[in-house]
Design a protein around this nucleic acid. Structure first.
Lengths: 184, 184
DNA sequence: AAAAACTGACGGAATATTCCGTCAGTTTTT
DNA sequence: AAAAACTGACGGAATATTCCGTCAGTTTTT
């Protein structure tokens, strides 16, 4: 419970102020928790960041795969999953900012990334299937997934930045662009 | 001169250690410069980051637009410019990491971004031309540019991370994906 | 030789981290 | 079933540590 509060507070503060500007005391205050409690739960500021990352990816994957059924055409499944990713981030701007900002941070080790990304391997199965059917350009499933993911990330960053208003049609067009970019 | 050394040192340290872990004293040491000299040139760590950003974007645009002539087909020009962007980042991994890591940082204000991005407006002219010729999907030139840029950024991040070896053919294929994604 | 630039030791403010008394909740004893 | 003993999460004051930014003395430039 307290742990949750701390992670939530950290998320908010890190995104709005940047890692270097946030003190443990601030996090404790924002979380309505004593400083000692922060240290009881985490060893350092860096560990808090790592745990926020893991928690965020878990919440993201829960959202994305909720109600996901392997049915319909491959293209439909592609659209379903990536649309969920997009909607998750649109509905969780703090989480998006955090995700983007720390993706390349030296604080997150390879191990942390491995753990956090595990759930998203299902995407690769989809891409592998597409490759079997010669739907995609000749890259590995992993690379294709990374490509689409990067594209979405980058696009969302600017979209949010510009307060672009994003309706269903915009999302559909964008998904089409993602599909077209990897189509054989 | 000293200023340059400081910016270079900062770039390296920020990328490898992360903003919060780098002290002014460390930067001074890495730059072979006294602490006072850092303060003579910059007011704060944040200002150093901002100036590195501006300097990096300037060096990037110089590289990209060197030898650029508005000739050949629009598709050729598209390929020329984006290939230059890709090659710049491949040859300057530190700069790439920095660029990626701080793109969404709260330290960089809208103004800083405006200044730094000025040189890249030439891209928009290209996209505008393409729109006139109905080559692209119906978005604004700016959004199309941001889309391609995001795609490239994301792709490079993962490519470098995986130490993917990137030869001319890979780049050509990737550029094709970028083109296809926005083609009408 | 005057001005400008530089250096890095130093003081102190800011921050991280520890430490320990409290107390709500749980288990054991009577 | 009431009382006593125990547990360990918690808060925040105390302490340790880091880091900033200044300034007196030095070097370099003009």
């Amino acid at each position: 419970m307290k742990r949750e509060q701390i992670l939530k507070a950290g998320l908010k503060l890190f995104v709005t102020q940047g890692l270097h500007a946030v003190t443990i005391a601030q996090i404790a205050a924002e979380a309505n928790v004593g400083i000692g409690t922060v240290y009881r739960n985490f060893n350092s500021k860096e560990e808090i960041v790592q745990q926020i990352w893991i928690r965020q990816k878990a919440s993201e994957s829960a959202y994305v795969f909720k109600n996901y059924k392997k049915q319909g055409s491959l293209h439909d499944q592609f659209n379903f999953l990536w649309e969920r990713v997009i909607r998750y981030f649109l509905e969780h701007p703090l989480e998006f900012q955090f995700s983007y900002q720390f993706a390349a941070s030296p604080i997150l080790t390879k191990e942390i990334h491995e753990i956090a990304m595990m759930d998203f391997l299902k995407f690769d199965e989809l891409y592998a299937l597409g490759l079997d059917q010669n739907l995609f350009k000749p890259l590995t499933a992993r690379r294709l997934r990374l490509f689409t993911f990067s594209t979405i990330n980058g696009w969302l960053l600017w979209a949010m930045d510009e307060k672009m208003d994003i309706d269903d049609a915009t999302i559909a067009l964008f998904l089409q662009m993602c599909w077209d970019s990897i189509s054989a």
